[in-house]
Design a protein around this nucleic acid. Structure first.
Length: 406
DNA sequence: AGACTCTTTCCTGCTT
DNA sequence: AAAGCAGGAAAGAGTC
């Protein structure tokens, strides 16, 4: 099912980077593009396989990555700020806060929680200071300096189609950051599904191959591999291997399940849409699903790859409280003797929990519901209503929780 | 295969 | 009015 992608169908800017024979497109599932950068050196690029890095190690604004920073929170260093997710924007905010020793209890990090990297790039000083009058100027300066000094470094060739996201959180970060500056014209070339992005001179190019193909009368069959019911075993395997946070919006969204769409873009619009669909699907037989024997799909419940073993919520909370990077900045003890603690940056903690569970749509509302379930299960307990503790954002460890008072 | 656990999602109603 | 809390209901995924 391969489609022919010609250089002529791509924007002129790419002609300097690629030759006619260098471009191949495969329409298997998921669709990806193979670009032969030079003889005998081929990169297979799929969504998430983003080939750019922010060289914070040599950046004058970021002399070094603090060793104690949780590597799980440094994925923003792997891509151009325009490609940051809302989570990565938050990760960057809190990284700067840590780096600048800001008082996180006063930092208005939550004011940045729904901002994408693209939006951040277009924000003015005023936009920053409106969101955080105290630290907005500093954040703005840091961001502008970082954007100006950002370097894109050629990564080594990889056999892996999908990066193992979990490796990033398990001590492999340094292996993926390279300090050598390359002179290769293809520096920073990013090909994600049907999108091609690259840094060229002072400009960041980003376009959709599918759109360009359609303009020139070309065609792809990338959607074929995604049509429900036609997935092969390997398709399923790919989906399992692929961390959800790396899924991008589909070009041909109609053939995607709502599950995939909602996970790609967890914005309010899709959340509302999925709510409606979820209600519909939960209250009646699925009329739109084609065959009636297909499993009912909703976006509820645990997602693929979201392991629960050894990853319990109360343990996650306990570990944050025991870590001075997060206590008292994100959550803090109200009374350690009785196990009472309080969320300081509730949405930030929820985002971290979502990151840990590979669920970018996590919110404090959902986290707190899970906390209440844990309370009924005995891992948390009622906070004494004696006026001593705040009535909001306060929880207490229960009888089944261990290790919090070590 | 099915029961169970641990969430996740959505919702309504209430309180602060 | 907005944010947070409480808890019901339904569902997914992992474990046993």
């Amino acid at each position: 099912m391969a489609a022919t992608l010609t250089l002529q169908s791509l924007p002129d800017q790419l002609h300097e980077v690629l030759t006619d024979t260098d471009v191949y497109m495969y329409a298997d599932s998921p669709p990806h593009v193979t670009v032969k950068l030079e003889e005998g050196k081929r990169y297979n690029c799929c969504e998430g396989d983003i080939r750019s890095y922010i060289d914070i190690s040599n950046n004058t604004m970021f002399p070094s990555v603090k060793k104690e920073v949780d590597e799980d929170l440094l994925s923003w260093t792997f891509r151009h700020p325009e490609h940051w997710t809302t989570q990565e924007v938050l990760d960057w905010i809190y990284w700067v806060a840590d780096y600048q020793n800001m008082d996180c209890t006063r930092l208005k990090g939550e004011a940045f929680q729904n901002i994408t990297g693209v939006q951040l790039c277009h924000m003015t000083l005023e936009d920053f200071t409106i969101r955080d009058p105290e630290f907005g100027t500093c954040l703005f300066e840091m961001f502008k300096n970082m954007s100006r000094d950002v370097k894109f470094i050629e990564p080594p060739p990889s056999e892996s189609i999908y990066p193992d996201y979990h490796n990033y959180s398990e001590g492999h970060l340094e292996e993926k950051v390279y300090n050598e500056q390359s002179t290769d014209l293809t520096d920073g070339l990013i090909i994600v599904n049907n999108r091609v992005s690259f840094d060229h001179g002072e400009h960041w190019y980003d376009f959709d191959i599918e759109e360009e193909m359609s303009k020139t009368g070309g065609s792809t069959s990338s959607s074929d591999g995604y049509k429900s019911g036609s997935s092969s075993d390997s398709d399923v395997a790919s989906d399992v291997e692929k961390p959800e946070r790396y899924r991008y919006p589909s070009v041909d969204s109609d053939v995607f399940s709502e599950d995939e769409n909602s996970s790609c873009v967890p914005d309010d619009t899709l959340v509302k849409l999925s709510r409606k669909k979820s209600l519909k699907s939960s209250k009646s037989a699925c009329d739109d699903c084609g065959t009636s024997d297909e499993p009912k799909k909703t976006n509820r419940g645990r997602k693929l790859g979201q392991a629960s073993k050894g990853n319990h919520l109360w343990e996650f909370i306990r570990d944050l409280l025991k870590d001075t990077k997060f206590n008292p900045h994100l959550l803090r003890w109200e009374d350690k003797e009785t196990g009472v603690f309080r969320f300081v940056q509730s949405e930030a903690v929820a985002q971290m929990w979502g990151r840990k569970k590979n669920n970018p749509g996590m919110t404090y509302e959902k986290l707190s519901r899970a906390m209440r379930f844990c309370r009924s299960a005995g891992y948390f307990a009622e906070v004494p209503k004696n006026g001593k503790f705040p009535k909001k954002l306060c929880f207490r460890f229960g009888k089944k929780a261990t290790g919090w008072n070590d």
